[in-house]
Simulated assay, not measured.
Amino acid sequence: MPKHVVFIHGLWIHASAWKPWQTLFEERGYTISAPGWPGDLDTVEATRANPDGLNNQGIAEICHHYADILEALDEKPIVVGHSFGGLIAQELLANNLVEAAVAIDPAPIKGVKVLPFSQLKSGFPVLGNPVNKSRTVALTEKQFKYAFGNAISDEESNALHAAFTIPGPGRPLFEDATANFVRNSPAAVNTHTAVRGPLLLTSGTEDHTVPRSVTVAVSKLYADNTSSVTEYHEYEGKGHSLTMDSGWGEVADDVLTWLASQGFGPRAE
């Protein structure tokens, strides 16, 4: 039976942005799915028109949503997550719900203490107003350009904004921003003692939303877990749009190569 890969999108992006990845992974012999967050609707347009289902959806709710989806599958899948989807992927892996995980430019987990200015600026459209914790917020073209599209042309960034952006719930950003001050933060991941499958963390060197220093700090949190594989890959010149801009294929091919190296080729037992 082909291995099943589940793709998890990040904040402000609709699951349909994974379609090129889904096509490629299917061509390589995997079965695939890309379920949206709780409250997402089937299309970008429908979600924009009625985003209220995303209101007040936090990290724990999103994790439980995906856990329920995974547990309904015939076998434990592989999960590939981008941005907040990368944080969710790590939580699912640490809880032994998936066989392997790829966290592409993931939102920081609890324990990361670096806070670059670009990360703060990228989150400011939400974090700048406490009322946003319980509602959804959409990014303007300009805000998207800074947070996602800074390493690509204005034309391409605006096209991605038009094609894939949806309002995102503010609550996950507030929970992530305060994670180090909350005892039972939903952004906490057992990096030290969880016996789990392999994990790949990645970073684009030009990422404003999750700067390289943040993902390097995440990788260091896993350093003492010698019973499980954790690897870090870096993409020179790429920003936070790296999973959906014109250079997505380089990242996808690298993920496929890594999965094969870990024994998770499409028909691996």
Rank of each mutant, 00 (worst) to 15 (best):
P266F: 08
N132R: 12
D74W: 01
T226L: 03
I59T: 11
E26K: 04
R48L: 03
V195S: 07
G149H: 06
H65G: 06
E156Q: 12
H192D: 15
Q262P: 01
E156L: 13
F174L: 11
R183D: 11
A72W: 02
L160D: 08
I13L: 12
V5F: 00
S261W: 01
P186V: 00
G237I: 13
P116M: 09
E26C: 02
T165F: 08
V229H: 14
R48F: 00
P172M: 04
P198E: 03
F7I: 02
P77L: 01
W18T: 00
K220L: 07
K113D: 10
G168L: 11
E155I: 05
K238P: 10
V114N: 09
I32E: 00
E156S: 06
A268G: 12
V126P: 06
D154V: 13
G29F: 09
S185Q: 07
T47C: 03
L93A: 05
I78R: 00
Q119W: 06
N129Y: 12
G239R: 14
G247N: 15
Y222D: 13
L87V: 05
V44C: 04
L199Y: 04
E231A: 04
V79Y: 01
I104A: 04
R267D: 15
A101P: 05
L199C: 13
V210E: 10
A217G: 07
W258Y: 07
A179Q: 06
L242D: 10
S157H: 06
R28I: 13
G168R: 12
V214Y: 09
K110R: 12
G53E: 01
I78A: 01
G128S: 15
P198M: 05
F7H: 01
K110F: 08
W12D: 02
P35Y: 10
L160R: 07
A187C: 15
A217L: 15
V251R: 03
L173I: 11
S118M: 07
W37A: 09
K142W: 08
P266S: 01
Y235L: 07
T243W: 13
L93P: 03
L173W: 12
G239Y: 10
F117Q: 14
F124T: 11
E45M: 11
